[in-house]
Design a protein around this nucleic acid. Structure first.
Lengths: 218, 218, 218, 218
DNA sequence: TATGAATGAGAATTCATTCAT
DNA sequence: AATGAATGAATTCTCATTCAT
């Protein structure tokens, strides 16, 4: 083992049994991310994933019960990365403006992790368990945000049940918009200005109350 | 009563060659709708479809070039049915209220054709050509509606480009909402009241100008 | 039916039942020749042949018991054409020189009927009955020629049994040579000079006695 | 005794991974030889071959990219065996007599490997890549032999180009003769005496100069 | 734990032949 | 006699999973 490969593994000394195990599992996981991002779930055969990971096919089944189990873990894991990414890019402005920040950050994340979009969109049918988990994660966090905004007076007139519906609309809007506008000639691009402005108008007017000088939440 | 009108009436005694041909194609098509709606595109093998249709596998290839060709025809065909269905259920009220009618009609259509949702949602990956065709159909018609509303003064302050983005948001919203709320215990149900009200609030406030006594479009 | 198509059929007036029948059979036969010559027996599906002939698939079975029957008729029919063609191009010179004329004429025939080579060569495996018939036709005629030459004193020291072997050698030589030298860049070409001279040397010296002034056969 | 030498000896107790792998591939190869020899390439389906080999169909594709790849390897491999076989049976007599030895040895080889003839003859159409490879192998070696004979004075008056043509004639002659005379009632038999004598006369007189007391080549 | 050959159930598609009209 | 839709067996190839080493 060379120094550089040790460095890449994050360890400097020889790996013990547990670490080697985790390291192999990680290799398979990362390979799956790459493969699904590039070819989609349907083409993500165990053969392709293990080849990309540089391990034998049999090794796969030492770490995952079966192909589906891995596929179902893919989206939730990346989904959490996304939540962190967006949270870091959201400031303390008025709630309506924060929502626009989140919207933009979502598109930024797609550019950061181009595999995400495909993994997200196909998951509903190829990794339904993972998809559900992801959706619950996001919806829960999102509803909490809206509630907080309502508590701060930035939203009125929406019930908790309606929040849940709103959250699905916003997620759906993002999904369709990203599919439509994130790809130009095979490359992942930033959201066009008019897309952001349209989202801003719809959401700001439709969901939030007009911002006043002292209307900051938190 | 002519032979052809006999065929159309569903009460068939004897069909001529052309009618028999169309009838068989139709059987395959309907079987595919059923199968894809129930099992999804991935599981819609030619064997399954032809079995459902009650014809031999080889017969399939007398009517469709290959499996994909049929799959790509599925969504656009049903999509057009949907457009007609919604149009029939849309009155002449104020534009904002018409949009809510369309929203409700969409959910009604899903109950009418429960296969539609799955055929629509999976199409992006399993029948991309058909999906694109469908999306274009819908987006074009939808943008035209919004423009007319703007011309009638029911919408202001949105550009054509923004309309396109809005249309994708609305389609995305419907898609996610229908996935979340249309199924209860395996049955297709009507949209809950709070979903309709949330949509109504978001869209009415976000997209349209407040309705005045003389604010009808057209 | 137009005048020109009547002319093409070789008939000027309306065709009666028998003639129509023969005409259809002929169309199928010619189509098969074309198709096998271009794509080979293996790709000569009934669908392809009938399409080329401009008739329905079912029509095929009104004229031929099955696909194989037609294929087996192909080679013997053209083989007879070849025999006539070669015979017409053979003069009354010394037997050895006649053999060279036949050899050259064989290559000329290939250029005249470019389908022949493929039909001949593949027939052994795809139309074995027809192949055998053809081989018998040719061998019989060829042996007769050699016997006549022996009777005329142009060949000595070969028995009838040996003649049969010689004939197979000569046919084999032609077959391999034509495969090797008749195609250049997809086109059928004349036999190169050195091929003819090599054949001439081998056969003239190996089979015939040296030509004398009065050594003409016949 | 090493493991590998155990394998080579045919008496096998335990094979290691590499040996097992080679052993399986060999089983498939041998099965293909048998099947093609008996039924021809066209009937040599993967199902038939793997059944004959006693392995699962899927196993086939662990060892060969596809069906055609195997078929194209068949003839060149056996062709090399044939060359060795013939070379071993060729003495140091005069070149003309050596040629007769080779001719006889060819027929002996067919009796040794009865599958060869069919594998050879059909290859042109079913395994064209393998056929070309084989033909090149043989023609190259054959021309080299003729040149050596010319250098030794046993052949005069033939150019290199003519040699190539001669070689094709000899190969064609053998091919046709073997088809005609090697099978009697389903069994492979030796070449009849009159066939050998006819070949001997034609080639000895047609290609070589009369043998003198000191006319040995080499 | 890692390996990779072996498995066998299916997948899409082709095509000679039949047969009702 | 002509038609052409219907048939279904057979083909090649894929791939998740198993298991002996």
């Amino acid at each position: 083992m060379t120094q550089s490969s040790q460095a890449a593994s994050g360890k400097v000394t020889k790996l013990n049994r547990v670490e080697r195990n985790a390291w192999t599992k990680r290799k398979i996981f990362d390979a799956a991310t790459k493969v699904v991002g590039k070819y989609g779930y349907a083409e993500a055969s165990v053969a392709r994933i293990t080849e990309e990971a540089g391990v034998a096919q049999g090794t796969f089944y030492n770490h995952f019960e079966n192909r589906q189990e891995l596929l179902d873990q893919l989206l939730p894991k990346i989904g959490i990365d996304m939540v962190h990414f967006i949270r870091e890019r959201t400031g303390t402005a008025h709630a309506a403006r924060q929502e626009i920040e989140r919207f933009s950050a979502f598109f930024d994340f797609i550019r950061e992790v181009p595999e995400f979009l495909r993994i997200l969109n196909e998951a509903e049918y190829f990794a339904p368990i993972g998809y559900q988990k992801h959706l619950d994660n996001i919806a829960t966090a999102y509803v909490r945000i809206l509630r907080r905004a309502r508590h701060a007076g930035a939203i009125i007139d929406y019930s908790d049940e309606e929040f849940e519906a709103i959250v699905h609309m916003l997620m759906g809007a993002r999904g369709y918009l990203s599919r439509r506008y994130s790809y130009v000639g095979g490359n992942v691009t930033a959201a066009p200005e008019h897309v952001i402005s349209a989202y801003q108008k719809l959401v700001t007017r439709g969901l939030f109350v007009p911002e006043r000088k002292n209307g900051h939440d938190r």
